[in-house]
Structure formats: C-alpha cells, structure tokens
C-alpha cells in the first residue's frame, strides 16, 4: 500500500458518501438538474459483485476485505434506494444511454482478452472492463441536461480523482516493486480519460463558483 492508492481509495469512499448524502438530503435522485444515473449505479453494483468473487478465498488484509464488503454493500444499497425508495423521482427518460452495449462489449472482450480462461478470472476481467465505462450513462445524462448541481459535480470529481491517483499508484508500483498488470492499466487509463472533459469544466467553472454548464 502506498499513499497514492490509500488516498485514491479514500476518494472512492468519499464519492460514495457524497452520493448517499445527496440522495438523503434531497430525498430524491432527480432534483432539478442534479440527476444521478440509475444505469451507472447498477453497473457499479455489477462491477463489485463480479470482481469480488474472491472475497472469501483471497484474503489480503483486513483493510482490503472491509473495503470490498463496503463497496458491495453500498452499491447494492444505492441501487435499492433508486429502484424502490426514490423510484418516483428517478426519471428513466433522461437515463437513455444504451448500457446493454457496454455490458455486452465488456463481456465479449473479457472472454477474448484475459489472464486465464476460468470462470472467476473472466468475471474479474469483465468487472475491470465494465468499470472503465460504467460512468458513461452518468456523463451522457449530464451532456443531455447540459448542467449539473454542484454536489453531483463533487461526486464526479471524487470519482475522477480516485481513478487518476490509481494511475500514479501504478507508475509508483512499477518502479518500486516491478508490479505489472496490463489489463488493469489499459482499462484504467481509458476510464480516467473519460473524465478529462468533465475535469476541464469542473476546474474552469465549478471551482470558481460558477454553475456547471456545458458550453
């Protein structure tokens, strides 16, 4: 564990707490201009469920196991909240990204490009590819509405920072322990790249007190 990865993981936790806070505070997932994509959240739940199939078999540390349990539980809780508790305020007409294509694409790629052709390994690879594109429905929704509430942009900023710090962590690990993981690296680079446009607007507008609005 290094500082980059620790802070990255903490930013990931922060993003989840921001999301839960926002949902509890507004008692809805669809306050004006602040929509959270159900598809993105459902994809994240799928990512954690397929990645942590080794939860009981592969013990790394108490930290690792606790985080895995938290990610699975919180993602399922968020999906539950959106699907049942705040269902009336979740507007599927804005959540129109074709998620089935990215699920299908990630599944097909996981079957072809993986480290070993076993059920667990393919599921793990699928989760890596799917995580890379899971934010797309949310970003697509943002593009469609053209603006976002500040708290939603903080959520995306925390998520983007978590991914960016993982890139730094991999460079650090390569030099310090000769750690190599091409599947994770390429998927991670793609995932971080998706945040570039968002980061640009976040830094130039939101941090200067302006509303998040697409040009």
């Amino acid at each position: 564990m290094n500082l980059f990865r620790l802070v990255a993981d903490l930013m990931h936790l922060v993003s989840i707490f921001i999301l839960l806070l926002k949902m509890q505070k507004t008692r809805s997932v669809a306050g004006r201009c602040s929509r959270i994509s159900f598809k993105t959240q459902a994809l994240y739940a799928t990512v954690f469920l397929t990645r942590y199939t080794d939860l009981f078999a592969n013990f790394q540390s108490l930290y690792n196991t606790t985080m895995k349990v938290f990610f699975i539980a919180s993602s399922l809780y968020i999906v539950f909240l959106m699907k049942f508790k705040f269902k009336a305020t979740n507007d599927p007409r804005l959540d129109t990204f074709k998620a089935q294509y990215v699920v299908g694409g990630a599944a097909a790629l996981a079957l072809i490009v993986n480290y070993a052709f076993t059920v667990q390994e393919v599921l793990w690879t699928f989760s890596i590819y799917l995580e890379a594109v899971a934010i797309l429905p949310q970003l697509f929704m943002l593009t469609k509405t053209g603006e976002a509430e500040v708290i939603t942009t903080h959520y995306l900023f925390a998520l983007g920072t978590y991914r960016g710090l993982y890139l730094v962590n991999w460079i650090y690990r390569y030099w310090t322990e000769y750690y190599v993981d091409w599947i994770v690296w390429i998927a991670g680079a793609v995932q971080t790249g998706l945040y570039c446009d968002f980061f640009y607007i976040y830094f130039t507008k939101v941090l200067k007190g302006a509303k998040f609005e697409l040009p």
Partner: peptide, 10 residues
C-alpha cells in the same frame, strides 16, 4: 521477472 498481477488492489 515481472510480478504476476496479485489482485491486491480494489
């Protein structure tokens, strides 16, 4: 020799 991926990351 590169270390095989260890799956110690989240």
């Amino acid at each position: 020799e590169p270390v095989k991926h260890k799956k110690d990351e989240l």
